[in-house]
Structures are given as structure tokens and as C-alpha cells.
């Protein structure tokens, strides 16, 4: 089945519907009309740009360009992790830990999936590598930022409990164990929930896109299962690494709680 071409005029029709929503929200004084329009404009511009980049990248297909784009995506994700935290580790540690943990988990899982499971030729073929990595990073980013945000927030609130436990002679790992576990768990829950609801409540975006683009549903389902598993694995390990590193950073060599290493609340 050939894919039905979308013309700019047809997209413009969809845009008119967004304008209608913006007009309605302006009329109802929701105060989101402006950000709605800006968001819509950003979608058009950003996706058009990445479309151009991908077209060029697919034409070249060299490992160096794939790697460069991957690194650029990673750095943007790292910035996003920092922006999504209310209290964060200062002096670049939030960015460093977030980026490192996403790199370790997303890149490892993506490369493993490409080389061992999907096996395109060459393994870094951008048609497979970039979308896969994008989905991994997008989800790992959510897990890592939720986990880190939860960790710094609960440590800030529970500093007296942590110090009381230190006073009783508990090692720092034991004094922060509960909060660490909570943070890791809350980072993992979105991925677990997504798996539980897949296909029943929601048709995942990737599968929908593949079916719309003409793939047989059975193949789309197989890819979706693969992607959900890898996303969960990537998110899980990424969150665990981030929470582990960040909680270590909250204590110094003498196992003192160092809240001066967290920034003040940003909202």
C-alpha cells in the first residue's frame, strides 16, 4: 500500500484547527493562547529543520555525522534534564550527571539493539539509529529528570532525618537509602505504566506512525514491543545511575550532608 502524500494545504487545514483552539482559549481567557501558538510554530519549524537534517544525513549515511547528531541530541536532552528540576546540583553537576547517565544507558541500549537485535547494514544506518536513539533519549530524559528532581527535593525536605541517621552512626548510603529508593522508583514508574497501558488505552505513537506509513500492523507491533522494552531498560538504568551518582554527590568525604551543593528552589 503506497503512503498517501500530505500536501502543505492539508497541513494548513490542521493548523486552522489549532488556530480555532487558540481563539477559543483566548475567548475563555485561559491565558494559554499565546504559548499554544508559539508551541505550534516551534513544532513546524523544529520538525521541518530536523526533516532537512535527516534527509541530508540519510543521503550521506556516514558514521561521523550520525555520531555528531547523536551527541547534539544528548546535549539538548542534558539541558532539558537540568531545566526540569526544581532544586538541582550546582556547578554543572546536574547537567554532568544527567548527561552521563543518559549517555551510559541510552547509547549502550541503542547500540546493543542495533547490532544484536535489528541488525541493519551498516549497524549505524541513520534510518534506524536516529529514530531509535531519539525515542530512547526522550524517555530516559523523563525518567532521569523525575528521579533527580525527586531526590533533591526529598533530601531538602528530609535533611533533619538524614542528619539524625548520620548521628546514630549510619553510613551515608543507609541514611539516604529510603529517599534514594523513592527517587529511583518514581523515575521508573512512567515507563512501567506506559507498558501496562500500551495497546489497551493508547496506541503508541511510533506504531501509529508506522501503520499510517503503510507497515502491516503485525510488523509495527513487533517493533513497538522492541522499542518499549528498550525504552524501559534505558530509562531504568539511566535513572538508577543518575540517582546513584547524585546521591553520592550530596555527601562529602566525611559523609556530611552537603545541601550547599543544591541550588535554591527555582519556582
Amino acid at each position: 500500500m503506497p503512503v498517501i502524500e500530505l500536501s502543505p494545504w492539508e497541513l494548513a487545514l490542521a493548523a486552522v484547527m489549532v488556530l480555532l483552539l487558540a481563539a477559543t482559549s483566548y475567548w475563555a481567557r485561559l491565558g494559554v493562547g499565546k504559548s499554544l501558538l508559539i508551541g505550534a510554530a516551534r513544532t513546524v519549524v523544529q520538525l521541518s529543520l530536523i526533516g532537512l537534517v535527516l534527509e541530508a544525513l540519510f543521503a550521506v549515511g556516514a558514521l561521523i555525522w550520525v555520531a555528531l547528531l547523536a551527541i547534539a541530541m544528548l546535549l539538548v536532552a542534558g539541558r532539558e534534564v537540568v531545566a526540569r528540576q526544581n532544586r538541582r546540583l550546582i556547578r554543572g553537576w546536574a547537567f554532568g550527571i544527567g548527561t552521563l547517565s543518559m549517555f551510559v544507558s541510552s547509547f549502550t541500549v541503542t547500540v546493543l539493539t542495533l547490532t544484536v537485535i535489528i541488525g541493519p547494514d551498516p549497524w549505524y544506518r541513520p534510518q534506524y539509529a536516529i529514530p531509535l536513539l531519539g525515542m530512547m533519549l526522550g524517555n530516559t530524559m523523563t525518567g532521569v529528570s523525575i528521579g533527580l528532581d525527586r531526590l533533591t527535593d526529598s533530601v531538602w525536605r528530609g535533611r533533619q532525618v538524614i542528619e539524625a541517621r548520620l548521628m546514630l552512626g549510619q553510613p551515608w548510603q543507609e541514611a539516604i537509602a529510603d529517599m534514594r529508593r523513592d527517587a529511583a522508583r518514581s523515575g521508573l514508574i512512567p515507563a512501567i505504566n506506559a507498558m501496562a497501558a500500551a495497546g489497551v488505552v493508547s496506541l503508541p505513537g511510533m506504531m501509529t506512525g508506522q501503520i499510517l506509513a503503510g507497515s502491516p500492523p503485525s510488523l509495527a507491533v513487533k517493533y513497538q514491543i522492541l522499542v518499549m522494552f528498550t525504552i524501559t531498560v534505558g530509562t531504568g538504568f539511566g535513572t538508577l545511575v543518575a540517582v546513584l551518582l547524585a546521591s553520592r554527590r550530596l555527601f562529602d568525604q566525611r559523609e556530611r550532608l552537603r545541601l550547599d551543593r543544591i541550588s535554591a528552589s527555582s519556582n
Partner: peptide, 19 residues
Amino acid sequence: PAHQWRRRVMLVPAESQWW
């Protein structure tokens, strides 16, 4: 190590915490 020191020289604060 700091936790071993604190286990020996134990501080009991004025306000107790329970978790």
C-alpha cells in the same frame, strides 16, 4: 571513616527525628 567516628562519639540532638 566518618560513620564509625559518629558511632563512637555519638551526638544526641535536642530535637529527635523519627522515620
